[in-house]
């Protein structure tokens, strides 16, 4: 590893000040799990890391209002997995975390670092996109809110400007919306996914009003599948054939990229089958507990 400096500011304000520089080799660190791997591999050589772990504990809090759950960017993935608020309001997130990396990584990794990393294989981004979540981004003297779908712009790329930090994630409560995530692994049960499919369904009685389908580990970033979503709009939930049509539409519109966990053709077939199954899961789960 190339030599670097590690700073540990004690407030968000101070951290934003330290990050307000034109020097692109100054980087924020959350849990440091992804950073350390990139530094060991030599693909990232920061001159200075600004660790966020000693900023005010409020930035790790999980709270709720009438219509949303707010999660501080410094909350660890374990804290989110075991949070009572998350388990009751957003059980799909708690279920997803159970097979994300391993206990030791989840004990250290933060939500902000998870989203800013933008590895297209990650499990949480498609789930948060399907749930309609947004990130609150702070920079020195300014704050903005952005849908998670617009945060991740490509292969390990985000729309964050230098000097900006993710400080909170806001996830709308799902009420009558039902969601599911399927992580398909091809090497071992708790591996990185060969495909991730997240769905959230809004129904009124037996009719689907809206469906959101977000797929990861198949493209350069997690993407919604609009054609498959269109098939479901206005359909009856009792019509099993419509789920098959949605899977076919998803496979037709997707342009998967091969990686070491599956070829493009294989991923296309995974999409066909697992979009259908994820829809079934969401209809069966009806918001069940993790």
């Amino acid at each position: 590893m190339r030599p670097f400096e590690l700073l540990e500011p004690s407030s968000l304000r101070e951290a934003l000040g330290l990050l307000d520089t034109a020097d692109e080799t100054v980087r924020p660190a959350g849990g440091g799990t992804a950073l350390m791997l990139m530094m060991k591999a030599g693909v990232l050589e920061p001159s200075r890391l600004i660790s966020l772990r000693r900023i005010e504990p409020a930035w790790a809090e999980i709270s709720q209002s009438a219509d949303a759950v707010e999660i501080g960017a410094l909350a660890t993935l374990s804290a989110i997995e075991h949070s009572g608020i998350v388990r009751s309001e957003l059980p799909v997130i708690a279920r997803t975390l159970r097979t994300l990396a391993n206990v030791r990584v989840r004990n250290v990794a933060t939500l902000g670092g998870n989203l800013a990393h933008a590895d297209p294989h990650m499990d949480l981004p498609p789930v948060l996109i399907a749930l309609g979540a947004s990130v609150i981004i702070a920079s020195r003297g300014a704050e903005r809110e952005l849908p998670v779908a617009e945060l991740i712009s490509g292969y390990y790329e985000t729309t964050l400007a230098s000097g900006e930090l993710i400080v909170r994630v806001r996830v709308p409560k799902q009420f009558a919306r039902f969601s599911a995530y399927r992580k398909i692994t091809t090497r071992s049960a708790d591996d990185w996914p060969a495909l991730g499919v997240a769905v959230a369904l809004d129904r009124e009685g037996p009719v689907l009003r809206e469906a959101r389908i977000a797929v990861s580990a198949a493209f350069d970033r997690p993407l919604r599948l609009a054609a498959a979503e269109a098939v479901l709009r206005g359909a009856s939930i009792d019509d099993e054939a419509v789920l098959i049509h949605a899977g076919d539409a998803a496979a037709d519109e997707a342009r998967p990229i091969a990686d070491e966990r599956g070829s493009a053709a294989y991923k296309r077939e995974l999409i066909r089958v697992h979009v259908r199954r994820a829809l079934r899961d969401a209809l069966d789960a009806q918001g069940g507990t993790p």
Binding site: T33, N102, V108
Partner: peptide, 23 residues
């Protein structure tokens, strides 16, 4: 050295972490 195997496990403030991925 990548957080995968657990041979480097230690407890920090009572929580298990991978020593190889912790400064």
């Amino acid at each position: 050295g990548q957080g995968l195997c657990g041979c480097c496990t230690v407890l920090v403030d009572g929580l298990a972490v991978s020593g190889c991925l912790y400064f």
